[in-house]
Design a binder for these strands. Structure first.
Length: 132
DNA sequence: CTTCTCACA
DNA sequence: TGTGAGTA
C-alpha cells in the first residue's frame, strides 16, 4: 500500500530513463503523447518519471520488440489494466522490505550519483532485482 | 549542460 | 523515428 506511493514518486529525468530503458527521448515522448505513460511534470516542463513509468516503458519496449505497433501496445496495456481491476485486493498484504531497501538505495544513487560516468550498469543491476 | 517543443530533409 | 533549431 505504502509501496505504491514510492512506485509512483516522480524521481528521474529523461536522461536517467533513457539509460534505464534503452529508449530514445524521442520514443519516450512519443509514447507519452500516445497516452501510454503519464510522467509527472515538475516546475516548468521537465518530465519526472516514477518506477511505475519506467516499468511501463520497459514493458512497452519489449512489446514493440515483438513487432507490436503502438495500437497493439495500447490494447495489451488496456487489457492488463482491466485484468488487474476486477474484484478487490488479492488477500494478505505482501510487504517486501527488501524492495523498499532497493528503492532507497537507488534513490541515493540517483541523487548523489549525478556525475556522468556510466551509472547505467549499477542502476540497471539494482533494477533487475524487481523486474524479475 | 540537460530537457522541452516543434518542424522538416 | 531521427535530428536540428531555439528556449527555459
Amino acid at each position: 500500500m505504502c509501496d505504491d506511493f514510492r512506485r509512483n514518486l516522480p524521481l528521474f529525468p529523461m536522461g536517467t530513463v533513457t539509460q534505464l530503458t534503452e529508449l530514445t527521448p524521442r520514443q519516450i515522448r512519443y509514447y507519452e503523447q500516445q497516452g501510454l505513460i503519464h510522467p509527472a511534470r515538475t516546475r516548468g516542463k521537465q518530465r519526472l518519471f516514477s518506477f511505475n513509468d519506467v516499468d511501463l516503458l520497459l514493458r512497452i519496449k519489449s512489446l514493440m520488440e515483438k513487432g507490436i505497433n503502438i495500437a497493439g501496445v495500447k490494447e495489451v496495456l488496456r487489457e492488463q489494466t482491466q485484468a488487474l481491476q476486477p474484484e478487490g485486493p488479492p488477500g494478505p498484504v505482501k510487504a517486501d522490505l527488501s524492495k523498499a531497501e532497493v528503492y532507497k538505495l537507488m534513490k541515493r544513487q540517483l541523487h548523489e550519483l549525478s556525475p556522468r560516468p556510466n551509472q547505467s550498469h549499477l542502476i540497471r543491476g539494482e533494477l533487475a532485482r524487481f523486474f524479475h
